[in-house]
Every structure is written in structure tokens, then in C-alpha cells.
Amino acid sequence: MVRRKKTIGRVVSQTMLAEDILDLRLETFLASDVMPGQFVGVYPAGADALLPRPISVCDADREAHVLRLVYRLTGRGTTEFALKQPGEVLEMIGPLGNGFPVEEAAGKRVLLIGGGIGIPPLYFTASLLSPEGTREYTGGRSGKASSITSVLGYKNIQTFMAPQFAEITDLYLATEDGSAGYGGTDLDALFEIGRRREGSETVADIIFACGPSPMLKAVKEYALIQGVPAYLSLEERMACGVGACLACVCKTRNVDAHSNVHNARVCTDGPVFPAREVVL
């Protein structure tokens, strides 16, 4: 396992992708170690806000040491990050969490399901698994998927990152207000795909999902019905980010080996869990 550390990242660029959605690129050595589905903790500078903000990695350029974080403006911490200019520095801790088991997707039809701010972390996964992509991993977890379908759900027409997903995946869009793609949720779109591809038994061999908990609950049910293994990236309020404080737990089907109760730590045992192992 890669050693976690607290270090710094220097802002390379920051742009706004949609209302309250920021795209931050940071030069940091953490970029060379991070895996898809992992996250970093970014610290606000003020002494009033002391806890790291968990932000999933959207992409990482290992050679240039550039980490890409796409995050939503939600409060005190992210407002400060949004004001950072190129050249400025942010303190951060990482790499945190386990990440998606991308090695299990080699040679398979992969289905990515993302909702809202859960969409960016799937991009790193897609870019490494994409048969069209040229990226390879270091660290032996290599292998391309045979195909990647992505189903991305947004609130409205502000479908950030959708063009990028379209380049490397077979993309289906859903918007809650019907302004783009399917009107409805990701799952509505998914059933529509199923109808269209009548004849083929299932759409995918493996599912990776990240998004709000109602969506993850629906994905879990969908995967169960389809008989396809699914991996869900969960979110929970965190403090330490390294597994010590036991703040960010999720409920588990079986007794967890570390906690010895039906709780797992989202920050350390997750954030990615096999759908069948978590109680949502």
C-alpha cells in the first residue's frame, strides 16, 4: 500500500464547469500514487476550519504530477478553495481510501453510473479502462475493459464533464428536469438502454457507481436483479480521513473485521464497497 502523507499541492489552473462546480488542477506528488476512486483531504487555511475536506480524484497525470479535482461549492472550505489562483498552494492529505477495483474490470463490459458530484470520480476510472484510451497504470493493476457504458444523471442542462465521458465511453445522459438526455434519473435511463438493447441479456458484467445515496440504493437493486457485481462509492461526513476517529461509518451486512460490529469506515475500508456488503 502507498504510504499516506500530508503534503502540498500548487494550483495549476481552476475553472468553473457549471454553476457551483469547480475544476481544480494541482501539481502534487500525490498524483503519482493515487488510484481511481480514491480521494484526498484538502485543508482550508484558516484556523477556524481545521478538518480536511474529502474530495474524490477526478483524474491524475502521473508523469506531470497533476491531480484534477472537480468539486462542488458547498460551504466554508470549498468557498476558500474556489478562490485559489494559479501558483497558490493548498495543504492536502492522501491518497485516501481504497478506490475502485479496476483490475476486476479487465476484459469486461463496464457500466459506470454517476449522479451529480459523484460523476467526476468515475472519469479517472473510465480513462484508465477505456479501450480507446492510451493510458496505462503503473503498479500492475492494468487491463482494459472490453467496453464502457456510462450513465450520468444531472439536475439540469448543466451536464459538466459529459463531453469528456462521450469521448471515451458510450454515454447516456439523464436530467431531472428533462432538459438533456432522458428525462428522469440514471436508473430511468438505464432501463431505457435495456429496452433498446433487447436481445442482449445484460448491459454489463460489472458496475461502478458514485452518487447520492438514493441513486446508490437503486443501483444496488438493479445490480441484484441483473445479477451483476456492483461497486458503490459512498459518502459520509468525515473528520480524520485516515480511519482513526470512526466518524464516517456505513452499515455492513456482516460483522466488519476491523470494527467487530456492523460498521465499516468509509474513509479507509471504502469509500468503495461491494454493493452486497453494505446496507444502504
Partner: peptide, 17 residues
């Protein structure tokens, strides 16, 4: 073994938590 409380279990406050 104790399972602890429901989440959310933490909240940041001014200069603390």
C-alpha cells in the same frame, strides 16, 4: 463490541469540532 451512534457523527465548528 459497541456499534456507536448513527451518522452524521461529527460536525466542524469554529476552531474545533
Amino acid at each position: 463490541p459497541w456499534p456507536g451512534n448513527e451518522t452524521p457523527r461529527v460536525a466542524e465548528t469554529y476552531g474545533g469540532m
